[in-house]
Amino acid sequence: MSVIPLPADVEIVTGSTRGAQLWRVLRRDPLSIMSLTIILIYLLMSLFAPWVAPYPAQGAGKSNPPTVMLPPSPQHWMGTDQLGRDVFSRVIFGGRPAFIVPLLVVGLAVLIGAPLGAIAGFKGGWFDETIMRITDLFLAFPSLLLAMAITAALGRGLENAALALVISWWPWYARIVRGASVSLRDRYFVEAAHSMGVREPVIVARHILPNCLTPILIQATIDLGTVILAMGGLAFLGMGTQPPAADWGLMISEGRTSILNAWWIAIFPMLAMMILVLAFNLLGDVLRDFFDPRHYR
C-alpha cells in the first residue's frame, strides 16, 4: 500500500487571515502607522485640493502680482513664488499630477503586466518565451531614460508622460507575476480546477492571479516611490505637467532660477515629494519583511 504524500503546498493560512496578520503587524509598528497616515493625508489633500488649499485659484495657476516671492509667513506658510502664487496651495494641487497620477500609472502597469505574466507563466511555451523576450528589451533600458524617449515620441504633457511610465513599468509586473504563476501552475488546486474542466482563462483569472496579489502588492508599494520620483523627474525636465498647472517636479524646476534668494519656492515641493516617497519606502520595507522574512531580518 502506498502512502499518498501530503501535498507540500497545503495552505493552512488562508488569504483573509494573512491580511489580518499583516494588519496586526502594521498596527503595532509605529513607522508603518506613520507612513500609512502620511499617505492617507496626501491622498485626501490631493483629492480635495480645491477645498483644502488656502488659495485654490493660485494653486491652479492664477498669478497674483502683489505678493511676489514673499518668504514663509502666517498668511503664506510656504511663501509665494515668482508669480505671487501661494506655494502651500500649489504643493497641495501639485499632489494631483505628482501623486494621484503615479498611483494610476502603477495601477495600469499592474493591469497590463499581471495578466500577461500570469498567462505566460501558466501556459509556458512560445507565448511565455515571446512575452519574456519583450520584457527583456524594455528592461534593457534604464526605466527613466526609456520614459523620456517615449514621452519625446508622443509629445510633452502629463498624459503622455504617464503613458510613457506605464510602458516603461509594466514589464516588471509581468516578470514578477510570471515567476509566481510558474510556481502555482503545478499546485493541487490548479490541477483540481483543470480536472473539473474549468476553462484556462478562468483558471488564470480565478486561481492564478489572486494568488499573485502578495508579490504584486509588495512590488507596487516599493515601486510607487520610484514612480513618484520618475514622474517628478519628467515634470522637472518640462516633459510632464505644463505651466501654469502645479506639479512638484515642475515647481522645483521653476524655483531653481531663484534658489539663492527664495529657497522656499523649490525646497517645499521637494520636501513634499521626499516625505511621500519616504513613507512608501518605509511601508515597502515592512511589507517585504513580513512576506519575505529572508530578505531583511
Binding site: G232, G249, L278
Partner: peptide, 22 residues
C-alpha cells in the same frame, strides 16, 4: 540610507547649493 533613496536628486542638489554655497 532610506533618506538617500527617497530624495529626488534635483531637489537634493538645490538643497546642497543653498547649504554649502549660499
Amino acid at each position: 540610507a532610506i533618506l538617500g533613496v527617497s530624495i529626488p536628486a534635483f531637489g537634493l542638489g538645490l538643497l546642497l547649493q543653498i547649504l554649502f554655497f549660499r
